[in-house]
C-alpha cells in the first residue's frame, strides 16, 4: 500500500551541504575571496549604511589599471588643487559620458559567515554565495538578518517572556510555545541572536519588521537578530522529526539564513531521520497529529461540502482516519542542494 505514498506531497527536512546566498547591496565591500574557506563568525563583507550616488570624472589615461567593470571597488582619489576634483572610495555602477557613477558611503556594519563553509561566488552588490559544510534544516522564511549562535531549546510549556533572560545572550533559541512580537522584542533586548519558531502571525511579523526598521534607523544599533519560521502563520507545533533534529543539535553553534531559509546545523552531529511513511497532519480537525500512511482513502466529502482525495493514516494515538491528502505532508529526508 505504501506504493501510493507519493500521492502525499513531500516537504524538505534536511538539505545536505546547502548553498546559501547572503544579500549584498551596491556599495558593500566584500573582503572574502572566492574559493576561500570561511569559519562561522568571520567577516565576509563590510556593509554600507546610507549609500549615496557619487559622480566622478574618469581618470586620465594611465591613471587606472585597465577599465574597471561594474561592481568593482575603486579606492578614493585625492583632489589635486586647481586640476581635478577627487572622488571617494566606492563601488562602480557604470561609466558614461566620461564620468563614473559610484555607490559610496560609510561602512560601519559587518557581514559575518553564519556557518563554516566555502565562498563559491560573489555577485557584487547582489549576493555572496557560500557552500556550507554542515546540513541545513529547511524552514519557510527568515525574518530579520542571518546570524549564528549556540542552540538552546526552551521548554515547551514555558512563557517565553519569562524564560528569556540575559543568560541566553548570544544564543539562538527554539521557542516551542506561543510566540508574539513582545517575546521576540524581549529576546532581542536580552542579546539573543535569533529565534526559531513553528509559526508567526501576520501582526507579529509586521511588529517585528517595524521594530527592526527602527533599530536600523538608529545610530546605535543592536546586534543583528533573525527569526526563522518553520511553518506559516497559524499556530502550529514542531513536528516530531523537527524536534528530534533540535535535540540532536542542542548546544551546538547553528546559523540562521534566509536564502534559502535554513537552520544551519553542525556537520558532526548525527541527525535522526523519520521513517519514509511517517505522515504529519498539517490542518483540519487532526492538525498537529502524526502517524503512518496506509494508502489512498478515496474521494470523500468533508464538512462544508467539499469533496477531496483522502488518505488513510494510522495516527500515533491508535486511530485510523481518512484525511484529505491536502492536509497531509511527509518529509523528503534529503533534498537537492538548496
Amino acid at each position: 500500500m505504501t506504493g501510493w505514498l507519493e500521492l502525499v506531497p513531500a516537504r524538505a527536512l534536511i538539505v545536505p551541504r546547502p548553498r546559501i546566498r547572503l544579500e549584498l547591496q551596491p556599495g558593500d565591500r566584500v573582503t572574502a575571496v572566492v574559493g576561500e574557506a570561511v569559519h562561522v563568525g568571520e567577516v565576509l563583507a563590510e556593509r554600507i549604511r546610507d549609500p549615496r550616488l557619487v559622480e566622478a570624472p574618469v581618470p586620465r589615461d594611465g591613471a587606472d589599471q585597465g577599465i574597471p567593470l561594474p561592481g568593482t571597488w575603486l579606492p578614493g582619489e585625492h583632489a589635486l588643487a586647481g586640476r581635478r576634483a577627487g572622488a571617494p572610495a566606492g563601488e562602480l555602477l557604470f561609466e558614461h559620458g566620461g564620468r563614473r557613477r559610484l555607490a559610496s558611503g560609510p561602512h560601519p556594519d559587518r557581514l559575518h559567515a553564519p556557518a563554516d563553509g566555502r565562498v563559491v561566488d560573489v555577485e557584487p552588490g547582489v549576493a555572496l554565495v557560500l557552500e556550507i559544510d554542515g546540513p541545513g534544516l529547511a524552514a519557510t522564511e527568515l525574518l530579520g538578518e542571518p546570524h549564528w549562535g549556540r542552540l538552546v531549546i526552551l521548554p515547551e510549556e514555558s512563557d517565553p517572556r519569562l524564560a528569556l533572560d540575559v543568560a541566553l545572550a548570544g544564543a539562538v533559541v527554539v521557542l516551542p510555545s506561543r510566540v508574539d512580537a513582545e517575546a521576540l522584542a524581549r529576546a532581542r533586548a536580552m542579546g539573543v541572536r535569533g529565534a526559531v519558531v513553528a509559526s508567526l502571525a501576520e501582526r507579529d511579523r509586521r511588529d517585528l519588521a517595524a521594530s527592526s526598521a527602527r533599530q536600523e534607523a538608529g545610530l546605535q544599533r543592536l546586534a543583528p537578530f533573525g527569526v526563522l519560521v518553520l511553518g506559516g502563520y497559524l499556530r502550529r507545533v514542531f513536528a516530531a522529526a523537527v524536534r528530534s533534529t533540535f535535540d540532536a543539535a542542542s548546544g551546538a553553534v547553528v546559523g540562521l539564513v534566509g536564502d534559502p531559509p535554513l537552520l544551519l546545523l553542525p556537520a558532526d552531529r548525527h541527525l535522526p531521520l523519520p521513517e519514509p511513511d511517517h505522515i504529519v497532519v498539517r490542518g483540519g480537525p487532526e492538525a498537529g497529529r502524526e502517524g503512518r500512511w496506509l494508502g489512498p482513502g478515496g474521494i470523500r466529502r468533508v464538512r462544508g461540502g467539499i469533496t477531496a482525495e483522502t488518505g488513510l493514516v494510522a495516527l500515533d494515538d491508535g486511530r485510523t482516519v481518512a484525511i484529505p491528502i491536502g492536509e497531509l505532508e511527509r518529509f523528503a529526508l534529503v533534498v537537492a542542494n538548496g
Partner: peptide, 10 residues
C-alpha cells in the same frame, strides 16, 4: 502558503 489546508467547515 498552503492552499490545500483549511479545507473543511468555514
Amino acid at each position: 502558503v498552503a492552499p490545500w489546508s483549511d479545507l473543511d467547515a468555514d
